[in-house]
Amino acid sequence: MTDELRRLLRETARAHQPDRARMLARVERGTARPGAAPRPRDHGRARALTWPKLVLATLATAGTLTVSALTVVAVVHTPDPPRSPTAAAPSDAGRTAPPAVGSRTEDGPLWADGSVDPHSNAYWAQSNVTLKAGESLTALVVELRIALTEGVKDTGSWRTRPAADFDLSTREEGGFLVYRWTLKPGRTVPAGEHVFAGQYDHAVGGRDAKDDTYRIDAGAGAGAAEGGAAVWGGFA
């Protein structure tokens, strides 16, 4: 292939609008001998191009189409720019996870369990502390701590024992809504199963109780409840 033909092919490939007739004419001019008189055209000769010229014309047309196709692909399928690191999801690095709640659900005559009442709904919940006493208790403190997640607000409390037997306090403390029932002096809690419950509103949707806790201190004789058995746990 001569330098002139290479030049002609490169020029043809750069053309944006392929014109097959024009390219055939240019190829013929490039292959003609210097000084030779041009031969008359006829339809039969146009249909019967020699194979070298036909190949060159085909290559020229294909080259032009390829360049045009690559140009379109480059415009339409330009890759998206790389994401900025600041656009990534926030990392958990530096966030402090809530401390794990170690559980002790049985001690001496006491057994306890924490659970979210099945009648809770998307707006309101009740957390139950169930206590089983193996003997009569003369001192008892039950504390329920509800994490102040979005929308948490006290709406009341109850217990299966008589209200007159306990002093009840409800307050917010250290990021928790705290319910505390303290058995009054001279009162007793008989052996058996007893329930203490806190009720509260919360933000619409399911509420995660993984940070809620309870603790029970009890005694079967004279003196403070702290000197007897103790159980505690969570609601996860």
Rank of each mutant, 00 (worst) to 15 (best):
T149H: 12
T31R: 15
G227Q: 08
S91D: 09
T61D: 11
G175P: 01
G44Q: 13
G219R: 03
W181I: 02
P190C: 08
L49Y: 07
T182K: 07
V231A: 04
T105S: 06
S136R: 15
A197H: 07
Y179E: 06
D113W: 14
H194G: 07
L140E: 02
D208H: 03
K53C: 06
V195S: 01
A62E: 05
G186C: 09
F166W: 11
W111P: 01
V55H: 14
F235A: 00
P162L: 14
L70R: 12
A25P: 07
A32F: 06
T149A: 13
T155R: 11
T138I: 05
T160S: 13
A230H: 13
S115D: 10
A21M: 06
S136A: 14
A46K: 10
G134P: 00
L70Y: 10
V189C: 04
P38Q: 07
H194K: 10
L59A: 13
R6A: 04
A236E: 07
H43A: 15
G151M: 04
H77S: 12
A230N: 09
L168T: 14
T64W: 05
G221K: 14
A147M: 05
A220V: 10
Y214K: 04
W232T: 11
G233V: 02
G174E: 05
L49H: 06
F176D: 04
W111I: 08
G223S: 08
A222E: 11
T2I: 11
L56F: 00
W158F: 13
A112F: 02
A15W: 08
R215D: 01
A236Q: 08
P34A: 06
E11N: 07
V178D: 01
L49V: 09
L183I: 06
A139S: 09
E28V: 14
A147R: 12
L183Y: 02
G63M: 04
D113G: 14
A57M: 08
G223E: 08
K53D: 07
T71C: 05
